[in-house]
Write a protein that binds this DNA or RNA. Sequence first.
DNA 1: TTTAGCACTTATTAAGTGTGAGTGCTAACA
DNA 2: TGTTAGCACTCACACTTAATAAGTGCTAAA
Lengths: 346, 346
Amino acid sequence: MLTKRQLLVLKEIIRQSTETGQPVGSKSLMARLPVHVSSATIRNDMAALEDAGLILKTHSSSGRVPSTKGYRFYLDHLIEPTAASPMDLATIQQAFGGTYHELDDIVAQSARILSNLTNYTAISLGPEVASVSLTGFRLVPLGGQQVMAILVTSNGAVRNQLFTLPANVDSSAIEKAIRIVNDKLVGLPLNEVAKKVQSEVPELMMHYMTTPDGFLNIFGDVLKQAASERFYVGGRLNLMDFIGTDDMNQLKSVLSMIDADTGDINQLLGPVGNVPIEVKLGDELTPDTLKNLSLIIANYDVGAHGTGTIALLGPSAMPYSRMIGLLDAFRSELAKRLTSYYKNFD
Amino acid sequence: MLTKRQLLVLKEIIRQSTETGQPVGSKSLMARLPVHVSSATIRNDMAALEDAGLILKTHSSSGRVPSTKGYRFYLDHLIEPTAASPMDLATIQQAFGGTYHELDDIVAQSARILSNLTNYTAISLGPEVASVSLTGFRLVPLGGQQVMAILVTSNGAVRNQLFTLPANVDSSAIEKAIRIVNDKLVGLPLNEVAKKVQSEVPELMMHYMTTPDGFLNIFGDVLKQAASERFYVGGRLNLMDFIGTDDMNQLKSVLSMIDADTGDINQLLGPVGNVPIEVKLGDELTPDTLKNLSLIIANYDVGAHGTGTIALLGPSAMPYSRMIGLLDAFRSELAKRLTSYYKNFD
DNA sequence: TTTAGCACTTATTAAGTGTGAGTGCTAACA
DNA sequence: TGTTAGCACTCACACTTAATAAGTGCTAAA
């Protein structure tokens, strides 16, 4: 069992190592600890903490660095979140000022704000209701054989895609097809829509078109786009500061993971947890490349419009109490901003 | 005046330094030169080349590296472009296979292909006619107060943007406004459109709406989007390989220049020259950050649909003859692909 | 004009040397 | 029993030194 003073020592080691990034030794601890004991005493405490696996030496005679287990313990038991400063709060509110035309604009902006505020990398996922449903579908002819397909979903996302129609499709058939979509599919959850597009819808359309495939491909493509969650990243290049130049490969693979629009990000952020704010560290991060990094994941709630996620990727040695306080304020500001955005549609 | 052999030496220095990235000395030159003379003789030639400012020492007793002036001389007088290999050609054609729905998809894909092929960074700018004109404008209501504005231009680009209408706008007025746009503005070059939107159009609209500002702002925004050229970058992260880890700041500033959608890129690629392929080096590159890099700019022609640009950013020590040959093949393949795309609309 | 030979320069690498920060342990102390 | 002073020990880091290898310029002879 660890004594009270030993916990203080751990806390101070974490504090100093996030400040300086260097291993911390018994003397500098002695100077800053609230209790006044000699460095030898502190060394004994440090030995105990090391036995418990909470701190590490970088070499046999070096100071100590918190281990992953140490951070985890700190986060679970010791941390005292600092409330966001009024200045930060004002910065956030000001940065969210102005009008937004599109849901995605707000989400993208949130990633930018958060990364500017922290100098880390922010990842923002828009609000997602448990079952998004299709609320609108349009097909707009643009001249030539070009058409633009537009799809609106219940969480306010709008997806559009340009298409070139095959020459043999006539316009009255298209109109009928659109009517079928609007009659039969609008209002249903997206997964049901996807199911019906494969089963009964082709049959229905057969009445009006000889080959509904062309049309259904278009519809299916935009549908897929709407179903896949879109995420925004702010402060990509901050990675270069906190990963550093020594591990170029890590830097490269993290950057490409963030750029690539594959499922990696969703896997990273994991299922939306039931805790508002969660920290993932070391092995808890799924792609191994992120081993020495840390991810703070915050979920926010926009009522009927679902829950979203905003996350902060940084080094293991983050000033957690400040960051968690900041993120907590941020998620509620973001929720506020989104709620006011949604007011336009209800 | 330089002798024939001295030019051979220069050529070989450039060849070897692009291969190894290291300064090259008289002995290794002796081994690979087509003429057989002693290393001492070559040293004399090298001294002459250095006097002419075409090659440099990295330190007083090192081998030689081509100077910017040396590369420039090589490019202007000595280079013999290698035709693209049949394999490369096949790769390009295969990568362009498949169907594209949108002009921008082809342009974006071209940047990807070129960067994969070369392991450098590719920048692609779509075709631009001297005066792009407005060929279509649509405003699609999406429910709530949301509308999507879509604008089509004569070079095949489609730009769209989502908007939230103020509550006090009524739909019949909007319809009238759209008719005015289609009657008075469609068919005109974009710059004329921009002019009229400021002068006579507001007056016309006054007849139907009390405050046409809201509508005109929407229209103006999409117009601005359509007028600003969009570019695509492939192989961003290749920068990390050829800039290298030593100059982190350069890496960072080049990356952010490429990501930011400011005018920097247009300035970089400069006015479309009258030569099909042009190389810019050293001081010739406008942002100083690019000093030690090299940019190969290729222009291509799609007839009435204008001319586009595709460029390759790499280290000064690029295998120019291969790259120029490759780019020459690439630009004609890209033009071919675009021509066949445009066939859908003429 | 070309070449062999030689003195000279410099980067790179390895090995050796202090120095300083930090540790563990022991023995004395409260 | 917990705390402290003292001391020997370890290791990274910065610095010096020496050896090596690659390359140059110059001179004198062919």
